[in-house]
């Protein structure tokens, strides 16, 4: 059992932890997350807190512990003595633009990808994206797969992506890996997900509508 070592368990002993958040000295307690510590310490102007369970990707922080500087999510980071934390501003607007409805078929998707994300092919394998990912995703590998046109595999690599866009900020080539990942996942579904059970039911409903004009069906599309 790992229970004795869990930070939450030790929180009950209320050992104080001193750190700074956005430059303010905060006295927190062991076992608190950085979000809890920031509220506890009355740190003003916190607008980047969302789900508090690591899936919304909002509470982006930069953190220095000793000589080590890293980025992460505040709700997933426990306080440490001497740590310096800065809440990062929201990511800037994306610079890669596309609408799936502009793509007529899947055959030219590889060419379209290279038009939309020309930087992806220039990855210099610096691992900045991998190191910055709070979910431990092999971001670089995902970008490589997408560049090779293997969108299904690329998308699978990004499965746990929470759209914090910390990898975007870490990329010196401005590849926007998070959006490469999402592009890969979206085109995979858009062009290849054709489930027989769903298609069959949609057809039955269409027939119902024609035959019996079942009143509750109104797809609002036409």
């Amino acid at each position: 059992m790992t229970i004795k070592n869990s930070p939450a368990e030790m929180a009950d002993e209320s050992r104080p932890v001193a750190l700074t958040i956005n430059g303010l000295a905060v006295s927190a307690q062991e076992g608190m997350t950085v979000v809890e510590a920031a509220w506890h310490g009355g740190v003003p102007r916190l607008t980047g807190v969302g789900c508090m369970e690591g899936v919304c990707g909002s509470c982006r922080i930069m953190l220095r512990r000793g000589d080590i500087v890293s980025v992460g999510l505040a709700c997933q980071t426990f306080v440490e003595n001497g740590a310096e934390v800065i809440f990062l501003p929201p990511a800037s607007a994306p610079r890669h633009h596309y609408e799936l409805s502009d793509f007529k078929d899947g055959w030219d998707i590889h060419a379209r990808f290279q038009d939309i994300f020309p930087e992806a092919a220039r990855c210099r394998h610096c691992h900045g994206c991998n190191v910055s990912c709070p979910k431990g995703i092999s971001v670089e590998e995902g970008v490589m797969q997408a560049s090779a046109g293997r969108f299904r595999d690329a998308g699978e690599i990004f499965f746990e992506c929470v759209m914090c866009e910390l990898c975007d900020g870490a990329c010196p080539e401005l590849i926007a890996p998070a959006h490469v990942g999402l592009f890969s996942r979206r085109v995979t579904a858009h062009f290849h997900l054709r489930p027989p059970n769903l298609i069959h039911r949609l057809e039955e409903l269409r027939q119902d509508k024609l035959d019996k004009s079942v009143s509750y069906i109104d797809d609002g599309d036409d």
């Binding site: 799936l100 998308g155 085109v187 059970n197 599309d221």
Partner: peptide, 23 residues
Amino acid sequence: GPEVLRWLIQQGMQFEQTTGGDL
């Protein structure tokens, strides 16, 4: 329901499939 799933797939949402490809 079924039309909502189709729309979501069109937007690019993935779902778990069986080996036969059904949702």
